[in-house]
Design a protein around this nucleic acid. Sequence first.
DNA 1: TATGAATTCCCAGTTTTTCCCACTTCCGCA
DNA 2: TGCGGAAGTGGGAAAAACTGGGAATTCATA
Lengths: 148, 148
Amino acid sequence: MFQGASQINLDAKGRLAVPTRVRDPLTQGGTVPVVLTAHPDKCLLLYPVPAWEPIRAKVMSFPSLDAAFNPWKRLLVGFAEETQLDGSGRLLISPELRAFAGIDKRVMFIGQGSYYEIWDLERWQQQLDRLSSGGSPVLPPGMENFSL
Amino acid sequence: MFQGASQINLDAKGRLAVPTRVRDPLTQGGTVPVVLTAHPDKCLLLYPVPAWEPIRAKVMSFPSLDAAFNPWKRLLVGFAEETQLDGSGRLLISPELRAFAGIDKRVMFIGQGSYYEIWDLERWQQQLDRLSSGGSPVLPPGMENFSL
DNA sequence: TATGAATTCCCAGTTTTTCCCACTTCCGCA
DNA sequence: TGCGGAAGTGGGAAAAACTGGGAATTCATA
């Protein structure tokens, strides 16, 4: 169960130093590779491979002649890259994924249960503002009676 | 299982340098030829021949008097060309296929499970924007309860 | 059959990537 | 407050990959 937020700077080579306290839960002590992929909200998703596999399988099972599914498959499978942390616990983020998420240096690293989200810091703050400033946030169906 | 995105430039001769990490999976170490063909979304598809054969057979088996199938057959079979990577792992893309997909120089190379898609970079970004920009992405039927 | 053009194949320079090491900073503990 | 250890940060060297060009061969045309 991943949670918590960390503000992190990428170095000049595009490497992201994963916070120490999440390394072991994420990679099971270095034995498990991870997968980086893209999300429609223009952030990146980070999964341990075992958690990613069933999701990829589900996406791959979509009917490929139905045009509505193709953009999702292109996003989720098309951007997915399997990788490992380097000797210093850093994650190399490819230029393609950085470009997609608008990431250059400052990023936000957010636990989201079964995965982490990686946001460009500025974009993260914008999306926070949108939730807070819009008067009352729009509640999706099924959440009207949600109680904190 | 092909996945991942790479931005690649064609050289002046129309050659596309296939990324090293996908060469072996794609050609089984150079022993297997590949097939390039066209997709209605104006991108190209790249298959290892063994994966392509059953698909071509399936398309060829469509009833030819049903008008709805003919455009598919013309695209998938009509544009298909069998080829090989050159000694430097490059793929020569014919002028016909380049014209069809609007490819001149900058392309995006996208893994899609059993095949790769090759997009003109600009066209690729346009189709990404269509998924993200509409506020909330459009969920096709059957995907409403999909959980990442 | 000869000439020209286009294509294919191959080689080598240059750039990029990857892996590893070392230094600095921060934190805990004595 | 000083010391030890761990973590974050930056850099460098070796290896691999990309890019471009050039030569040889094939094909077409006169």
